[in-house]
Design a protein around this nucleic acid. Sequence first.
DNA 1: TTTAAATAAGACAAAGTTGTCTTATTTAAA
DNA 2: TTTAAATAAGACAACTTTGTCTTATTTAAA
Lengths: 149, 149
Amino acid sequence: MLLSKSCIYGIRAAVYLALNRNGKYVPVREISENLDISFHFLTKICRKLSSGGIIKSIKGAQGGLKFERDPENISIMEIVIAIDGNNRFSECLLGLPDCGILKPCPLHDDWFDAIESIKEKFNDITVNRIAEEVRTGNVRITEINNPDF
Amino acid sequence: MLLSKSCIYGIRAAVYLALNRNGKYVPVREISENLDISFHFLTKICRKLSSGGIIKSIKGAQGGLKFERDPENISIMEIVIAIDGNNRFSECLLGLPDCGILKPCPLHDDWFDAIESIKEKFNDITVNRIAEEVRTGNVRITEINNPDF
DNA sequence: TTTAAATAAGACAAAGTTGTCTTATTTAAA
DNA sequence: TTTAAATAAGACAACTTTGTCTTATTTAAA
């Protein structure tokens, strides 16, 4: 798995949040139920998105989550970094330290190319763009083939 | 991490084995010491390579490991499959089941392209080719910048 | 002001992966 | 035939990730 499960959940939750355009704060409970993700686990993940400056949260009744910035300008990469940290994509495929700097591992160049193309895509694709695709029914973010998400 | 640590160790061990061209059986102990991999952990991994038909092992004095077939014809992919199983490369990036069959996840196409190119490379690159690169000193398979491997 | 709805924080459990150790078995060589 | 060198097998420990639960705190609305 290139991405951790936490990261996957975070991406799906962000897309869900972007689907909700009425300006209200969305409770984690609602997200967890609709996406079938463990509530408490998801709250922890969302705290990372909060401290990463991607979403903001408000406690209490009518509280919940909202984007800190326009999700039009939030890339998938930002979410990955907020949750899995900055070096998910800079690790050597064979786990060798300083692979790029010292003598490289045998798969360095091939892996570098592949990971660069993934990184480019993750930087380009915004949360909003994915939400739009979900809206038009082209893709899904739930495990079951749910007509809504 | 795209590959498990077991898988990484397996690849490195296979390359080490390919470096040893004198026809003798190589003890796991020697591999583990030279590559700085836990001996018992490595024996387990090598058992997977054995049951996967990649190497053969002989017990007792002068025993050890040897390739079952010419490492000229053993691809990295075969090693990955023997250790991490067959669907390491067919998992959905967002963990959705049947992503390719049912309505896909939002990153399906992008991920599919990237993973295809990695798969092609893994299928093309042989254990021997890597061993040759290690011999000529272009790449390394150890954590420290060891002049030998 | 009280209550219900919400996040925050962190302890804890479960599961998976990684790593260690012990015992049994096999084999070549002394 | 005995011994030392090797793998086989699997129990078990440590660590990491994932998931559950409880308590505290905050906030809007009744």
